[in-house]
């Protein structure tokens, strides 16, 4: 005896099989997936910046405001490997000068972001650190619920990529939600 399920699927395949695949594909663009349906609880946000990162746009602050009770950890990262390379190749004085310039820039950026977050009455902390960028972010994000990162983070001066390879590596490697701006 013919199995009814098999019969229906066979007849369905003849009448509409490939057409249905196309239609479902079109619908998937505006149907939320099961994963998207679950609204993640965000109590801490990691915002990582470096010298190549864009200034966080207003839209990003709007998102942050929606997590009013969350704590934002803003970290400006100076590439420690680059500092070591300069010291070893150009000497101690050049390395110090580079570090001072980087620190100055970092403080300026952090100050701007702090001002904005204060205006929005968000809880936040700021840090300026010397670290290797990717390993630091990958490790630090484990203690947070959301990562915000510029698409040019870890880029180079010319910003030849739309999204820097470092950001790609981070986004692909971590399991936490990420906002790339």
């Amino acid at each position: 005896m013919v199995n009814f399920g098999e019969l229906i699927l066979r007849k369905f395949q003849n009448i509409a099989g490939s057409r249905y695949e196309e239609i479902v594909k079109a619908y998937q663009e505006f149907f939320l997936t099961e994963e998207e349906m679950k609204i993640p609880v965000i109590s801490s946000v990691l915002l990582t910046i470096d010298r190549f990162s864009q200034e966080p746009p207003d839209e990003l602050y709007e998102v942050l405001v929606s997590y009013k009770s969350a704590t934002v950890r803003v970290v400006y990262i100076i590439d420690s490997a680059l500092c070591t390379l300069i010291r070893e190749t150009l000497g101690e004085d050049e390395a110090r000068e580079f570090r001072e310039k980087e620190e100055g820039l970092g403080r300026e950026v952090l100050e701007k972001i702090s001002r904005k977050l204060s205006e929005l009455e968000m809880y936040f902390t700021t840090e300026l650190i010397f670290e290797e960028k990717a390993p630091f972010v990958e490790e630090a994000v484990e203690e947070h619920d959301l990562l915000m990162i510029s698409r040019h983070f870890g880029s180079e001066s010319l910003k030849t990529h739309n999204i820097s390879p470092l950001v790609f590596r981070i986004v692909q490697g971590i399991e936490k939600p990420v906002i790339v701006y």
Binding site: F4, G5, I8, L9, K11, F12, Q13, I15, Y20
Partner: peptide
């Protein structure tokens, strides 16, 4: 019946694919 019209087969077929069983 389930096989009385093409539209019946299509909807039951979609339901089957989505794990919803509508028997004859």
């Amino acid at each position: 019946t389930a096989i009385g019209a093409s539209a019946n087969v299509v909807v039951i077929g979609i339901a089957y694919r989505e794990g919803i069983r509508i028997t004859f």
